[in-house]
């Protein structure tokens, strides 16, 4: 499969602060590529540069063969953008919004009307098309927000954390929409800080932190970085001292890592079952009450934890 998007050493600086520190990656035509990272990692800045909203400080990228720095108008015709925050006219109806944005992408006449009807069907809002957007629920607004990005049938769709702040049902609908679009051949660049979304959707994942792309590959390739290790997650009381307990866990022979995330301690180990008794004993010795214990298979969260020493939600 050929690359439809190639990023070369992209850098964005704001005075003394470097938001994106020379990232390089490519996206194959027809794949869903996720940029996974915590808030402030540089995901939105990266998408803003790729969508030609912000000029990069240095570096370049090509999308569908067009440079974002030299041919921004051609790039804009090739991409669809679903921004993180809702970007709609709330005093207009869903149909009016879609008509207006379609016109901004050069659609007109019957092709515009037909496409708007198609998109309304795609986002499941045919019945509500004549209602003003301000009367919609958060999930419905999100769907219109996505619909705007689909109007001109872009070659690459950028989706910047499209599920932030919405109910589980709407989230499910959005994830299904993304998968449907991908089945129809659309290439998607999806940013998220939810590990589960990246795992469910992505062909490949790039993990970004502090403006650097620290790992890239398929989920299988990435989880290999933490070996076959499992993660034991202990939830302890709010008044307990998790740092001291995590330090004690590191003394257990089979424990590879022990990290504190709030009132949880993540213990990475080749076999959770084998260290479980030792972990509970250490807690009892310190009089710390364990509320619950989860055992997790190797996942992207563990990869991020392994690479950064922090949890994605930190």
């Amino acid at each position: 499969m050929s690359s439809i998007l190639q990023v070369q050493n992209l850098i964005k600086k704001y005075d003394d602060f470097t938001a994106v520190k020379g990232i390089t990656f490519d996206i194959k035509e027809g794949e869903i590529f996720s940029l996974l990272g915590p808030n402030g990692a540089g995901k939105t800045t990266t998408i803003s540069m790729l969508s030609t909203l912000y000029a990069p400080t240095s570096g370049d990228a090509t999308i569908a063969g067009h440079s974002i720095t030299k041919e921004p108008m051609k790039v804009r015709n090739a991409i669809g953008v679903v921004p993180q925050d809702l970007a709609l006219y709330e005093d207009l109806t869903a149909r009016e919004n879609l008509m207006f944005w379609g016109q901004m992408y050069g659609l007109s006449g019957s092709s515009l009307k037909n496409r708007v009807n198609e998109v309304l069907g795609q986002i499941g809002l045919v019945d509500k098309a004549k209602d003003r957007v301000k009367t919609y629920s958060g999930g419905m607004k999100r769907r219109v927000n996505i619909g705007v990005g689909l109007l001109h049938k872009p070659k690459v769709l950028f989706m910047d954390e499209p599920t932030v702040g919405i109910d589980p049902q709407s989230r499910r609908a959005i994830l299904d929409t993304v998968k449907d679009l991908n089945k129809q051949g659309m290439t998607v660049l999806y940013t998220t800080h939810y590990m589960e979304e990246a795992e469910e959707l992505s062909s490949r994942v790039g993990i970004i932190d502090h403006g650097e792309l620290i790992a890239i590959g398929t989920q299988k390739e990435l989880t290999k970085q933490v070996g076959e290790a499992e993660t034991l997650v202990l939830h302890i009381g709010e008044n307990e001292d998790p740092a001291a307990l995590a330090a004690a866990f590191k003394g257990i022979k089979e424990v590879l890592e022990a990290n504190v995330i709030g009132h949880e301690i993540s213990v990475i180990t080749p076999s959770a079952k084998d260290v479980l008794a030792a972990v509970v004993t250490k807690a009892n010795e310190r009089g710390i009450k364990i509320h619950s214990i989860d055992i997790r298979e190797p996942n992207l969260e563990a990869v991020f934890l392994h690479l950064t020493g922090r949890a994605l939600r930190d």
């Binding site: 030609t52 909203l53 108008m73 804009r76 970007a87 709609l88 944005w101």
Partner: peptide, 14 residues
């Protein structure tokens, strides 16, 4: 502030 101006700026509209 509501994001529609940036959205316009990433459409093929100068």
């Amino acid at each position: 502030a509501q994001g529609t101006l940036p959205r316009l700026l990433v459409s093929p509209t100068n």
